[in-house]
Design a protein around this nucleic acid. Structure first.
Length: 497
RNA sequence: CGGGGUAUAGCGUAGUUUGGUUAUCGCGCCUGGUUUGGGACCAGGAGGUCGUAGGUUCAAAUCCUGCUACCCCGACCA
């Protein structure tokens, strides 16, 4: 019996949902917009955490933990911040439940337990952190503060999608404080580069570094740097952000330091984050019609070994060999799972591990025992190879490298192919409509133009590519693709998640 | 918030138009046996307040009314 699932080109979003559920990453929870991340999904998140955490620590950051709940009054300080987040806050107003009637099970809120001040479940932690930094910072000697926290946040979303947009998400939020503007900007860029390296080297997701246009930046920031990745369906996914907050929060929370000359100045700050959305991006970048494809460096299990046997005696023989192979590989830091469960046939296991995206599968049966070989299968290309036992030690790590590289190159080529420079609105519409992709086009800088383009094509400005933003000299003047008005730079348009 | 779905065993479903014995089938689960190179097979077994509240009726999964929940497609957003 073959368990089918929806193909990408038939119904992309159905494919996406099915792959998440069938591969065991996550499922719906019964609470609207909130998902259960299953062990397999969390194990990927844990790897993401471990790798990124190391990179943060290497650049001088420390971890910290602030509360989940934020008093409403803290939250009301920074104007722009309130404006954007107040629409999607979950608010705690009471702290007790009581039985509605005696001897009945139904519970109601105890009106007596109303809180003096309502508490907001953090949609992000700037407010409580800046309230605290005010106490921590007096002198330039207290700076910089380079902190990060791993936690969760809640934003009451109207429309949710597994991993891509859920009302609760797991994430990492960095919050730094600096004595100079320049240092804060450098920090923002440093983090952007860490994210980029992580995404490209580990997750094999090529990203475009950019700056958000003024109307699209994080509320309360001066500049929002972002990473945009192109998914297989031609839509863009914002996969990481790093904000230069200027002095907005230090002013809102009155955080000043005394500089070396004894003068008081407002602190400069940044914040930056990535979330469980990365897992959504991982799926939509690499996976195919047979299931997940996970780059080896992020795969919870890099190699699975499946025995093929006719009887107990054969299994014992295979297991003996397998244990040795497993040891050899594990000594090199490769994660190996030996699946000798008798309740499933090899065919069942093959399909299961392909669905889960395990990069390499090794199978060993009587044929292999006889020839002292193993059948090695790679998930990314479906290629099968016979490898003799004494070569595995070298072969498998090299193959993992190759797979990692191939997955990245494939995504890179797809992204490059999907990125076009266009000057005519007809071409623009056609491209967006037919294949999607990143389109580099001139923009007159007005919100009105963006609105019109969005209405007509569903595409929006994703970002101003950082190389264009940074290098005034290469700024190219031209005419806005929509209005024909003068433009001095190209921006990236795309449909997005 | 608008539009569309769905709600029956752990999961996926048939039955609902046209009410009628003991609610269908597949997967999964348990027991025993045979199997095992691309989602094995045989035999036996367990498992249900048909989302919820009310109504119509001799009789409701099925008809009527209300309610609730989740999913999908849009508008808002990491």
């Amino acid at each position: 019996m073959i368990r089918q699932f929806t193909k990408r080109n038939k119904d992309y979003s159905k494919w996406y949902n099915e792959i998440v559920i069938k591969s065991g990453l996550a499922e719906f929870s019964g609470v609207r917009g909130f998902m259960i991340i299953k062990p397999y999904g969390i194990s990927i998140w844990e790897i993401i955490k471990t790798k990124l955490d190391k990179m943060f620590k290497e650049t001088g950051h420390k971890n910290v933990y602030f509360p989940l709940l934020i008093p409403k009054s803290f939250f009301s300080k920074e104007k722009q911040h309130i404006k954007s987040f107040s629409k999607e806050c979950a608010v705690v107003t009471h702290c007790k439940l009581i039985k509605k009637e005696k001897n009945k099970k139904e519970l109601v809120i105890d009106p007596q337990s109303k809180l003096q001040e309502e508490l907001i479940i953090r949609p992000t932690s700037e407010s409580i952190i800046w309230k605290t930094y005010k106490r921590w910072i007096q002198s330039y000697r207290d700076l910089p503060i380079l902190l990060n926290q791993w936690g969760n946040a809640v934003r009451w979303e109207m429309r949710t999608r597994l991993f891509l947009r859920t009302s609760e998400f797991l994430w990492q939020e960095g919050h730094t404080a600096h004595s100079t503007k320049n240092e804060a900007i450098e920090e923002t860029k440093k983090i952007l580069n860490i994210y980029t390296r992580f995404l490209e080297n580990f997750m094999a997701i090529p990203v475009l570094q950019g700056v958000k246009p003024y109307m699209d930046k994080f509320s309360g920031s001066e500049t929002t740097y972002c990473l945009e990745a192109l998914m297989q369906d031609g839509k863009a996914l914002q996969i990481g952000t790093s904000h230069f907050l200027g002095q907005n929060f230090s002013k809102a929370f009155d955080v000043k330091f005394t500089n070396i000359n004894g003068k008081k100045e407002h602190v400069w700050s940044t914040s930056w984050g990535i979330s469980t959305r990365l897992i959504g991006g991982l799926i939509m970048s690499h996976s195919d019609d047979r299931g997940l494809v996970i780059p080896p460096k992020i795969a919870p299990i890099q190699t699975v070994i499946i025995p093929i046997y006719k009887n107990r005696k054969e299994l014992n023989q295979i297991s003996e060999i397998t244990e040795k192979i497993k040891n050899i590989l594990e000594k090199q830091g490769i994660s190996v799972q030996y699946d000798d469960r008798d309740i499933f046939t090899p065919g069942w296991k093959f399909n299961e591990y392909e669905m889960k995206g395990i990069p390499i599968r090794i199978s060993i049966g009587s044929y292999e025992i006889k020839h002292e070989k193993a059948e090695v299968f790679r998930r990314d290309t479906y290629e099968k190879m016979d490898v003799s036992w004494n070569c595995l030690k070298k072969f498998i790590p090299e193959l993992l490298e190759k797979i990692q590289n191939n997955i990245y190159q494939k995504a890179l080529q797809r992204t490059n192919k999907g990125t076009l420079t266009l000057d005519h609105y007809d071409d623009f519409k056609k491209k967006i409509n037919e294949t999607g992709g990143f389109i580099l086009a001139h923009w007159d800088g007005t919100i009105n133009t963006v609105k019109k383009i969005q209405e007509e094509t569903e595409a929006t400005i994703r970002c101003i590519p950082i190389h264009i933003q940074n290098n005034v000299n290469v700024k190219e003047t031209g005419k806005c693709i929509y209005s024909g008005k003068t433009s001095n730079q190209r921006v990236i348009f795309a449909k997005s998640y």
